[in-house]
Simulated scan of single mutants.
Amino acid sequence: MTRPLEGITVVSLEQAVAAPLATRNLADLGARVVKVERTDGGDFARGYDHAVHGTGAHFVWLNRGKESVAVDLKTAEGRSVVRNLVEHADVFVQNLAPGATERLGLGAADLRSARPELVVANLSGFGAGGPMEQRKAYDMLIQAEAGLISITGTPETPVKTGIPTADIASGMYCSQAVLAALLRHGRTGEGATIDVSMLEATAEWMGYALYTQMHTGTQSPRMGLSHSSIAPYDAFPTRDGQMLIGVQNDHGWRTLVTDVLGVPELADAPRFATNVERVRHRAECDACVAEQTALWSTEELDEHLARAGVPAAQLKELDQVVQHPQLAARDRWREIGTEHATVEALLPPATFTDVEAHMGDVPALGQHTRALLVESGMDTSSADEALRNGVAHQSEHR
């Protein structure tokens, strides 16, 4: 069967996380993605670490299924290569510093003046315009500006999330917007210029916390594993570890204390009978639950909670996630290639019943440069000259 984006070509001038995630999503759906990189080291995410057989973990995560062309954009020849590749593309994505593509002659206005049907997606920290347009915008900084750090952590210590949430949010909105633009293009022939701001994507994800602030004037507190509006909702001790339990309604509370923990007298106790009262008496409620869960092993408690339909989970370490029985049972791992070794990668979460996602290899820096130079309009001798004089770089890995 045909992959959803088969026949679509994307050229991306990208680095780090946000834009590479957006274009990897498109590659997984079958688009051809040409990744434009610097000749001197390429996407700097390649060098964040060497965790995956010598390749950076971020890079392996974000760049499967792409072709890499490495050109020097400080040269007219390098910029011409990108313009010529875009000439035959459907989508151009970039997340360079604000104004950088305009200075290179690769801004949306320049590209779409010749091809108004092109879809251009610009991904930046703070969006076009406004007093912070030129500010540096790394994930942690955006988490701080969007208020995410202010509600994450414990009452004593604010923390950032353990994954690059701002990057992921903006990358997902970027690929979503590109898909919408392609859908419209298929109907009308129109192109699009899309602006995706990391700040705005993350602020949108703040959701109920923002609405609570706007309508009550109250800052959502940092609750650790707990929840400001629900109880019991936390990690509770077992004989050999801990169990996360989240009871979201009064029926669930009754089931927990009656059918699992064996203390039915707590079900209708006035201080616990409703969620509002349980939140008001959170410390006492949590202590009553913890007294009972501490009598169980984690495995036993997990089994009984699941059988009773009480929302709960074991707090898994990452090595347990790699071996997660649900991922194994659903056959979610696939092998992909890198320049040094074959590795396993998770299938994309959205599963099509009629066709599997395209899980291509992770490219070495400039792995496809010579072929793409020729595709951009150079003859073979000119392509070889560009490689010799440093305008372009070709990896030895083929």
Rank of each mutant, 00 (worst) to 15 (best):
T23W: 00
G171Y: 00
R83D: 00
A235I: 10
S113P: 03
V289N: 09
L305K: 06
G47C: 05
Q134M: 11
E156T: 15
L301W: 02
N95L: 12
T101Q: 08
P158C: 12
G78P: 02
M243S: 08
F272V: 08
F92T: 00
M206T: 04
T188H: 14
R32S: 05
E190C: 08
M172I: 07
E375D: 06
W253S: 10
M223Y: 04
R184E: 13
D354E: 15
A109W: 01
M214H: 13
A364Y: 02
L13Y: 02
V279H: 08
L301A: 03
T193F: 12
E375T: 08
G56Y: 00
R222P: 09
L62E: 03
D90C: 12
S297D: 14
T218A: 15
L305S: 06
A313T: 12
V93D: 09
V289P: 07
R112D: 11
V178H: 05
G130T: 06
P221C: 13
A169C: 15
R330N: 10
P349Y: 07
R278V: 10
A267L: 05
H58R: 06
A313M: 11
V52E: 06
Y233I: 09
L225D: 15
T165P: 02
R103L: 05
W333K: 07
R112M: 14
G162V: 10
P363E: 04
Q367A: 07
E375Q: 11
A312R: 04
R330C: 07
I336Q: 12
A166I: 00
A18N: 01
H53E: 10
Q367D: 06
T165G: 03
G377A: 09
M359D: 08
L199R: 02
H185N: 13
Q323T: 14
I230V: 15
A290I: 12
Q15M: 10
Q242S: 14
L199E: 07
L315S: 09
A180P: 09
E37L: 03
Q326W: 11
L73T: 04
H58N: 13
H227N: 14
M198S: 05
A269Y: 10
A287H: 10
V374P: 01
H358C: 09
H88K: 13
R278I: 09
P311W: 06
E375G: 02
R187V: 07
S381E: 15
L244A: 12
L85P: 00
S297H: 14
W61Y: 08
A16T: 15
V69K: 01
L141P: 03
I230L: 13
I163N: 00
D361S: 15
L106D: 01
V257W: 04
A231K: 09
Q248V: 08
G189V: 11
D90M: 13
P131N: 05
P20K: 03
N63S: 07
L73C: 05
S124N: 03
V159A: 15
D384T: 08
R280L: 14
G56S: 15
T258W: 03
A294S: 14
A169K: 02
A166Y: 00
S124I: 05
A383W: 00
D379L: 10
V11W: 00
H185V: 05
R64Q: 07
H281M: 10
Q94H: 14
D250G: 04
R330E: 12
L5G: 02
E200V: 07
I8L: 13
S226V: 08
V36D: 00
G56P: 01
A22R: 00
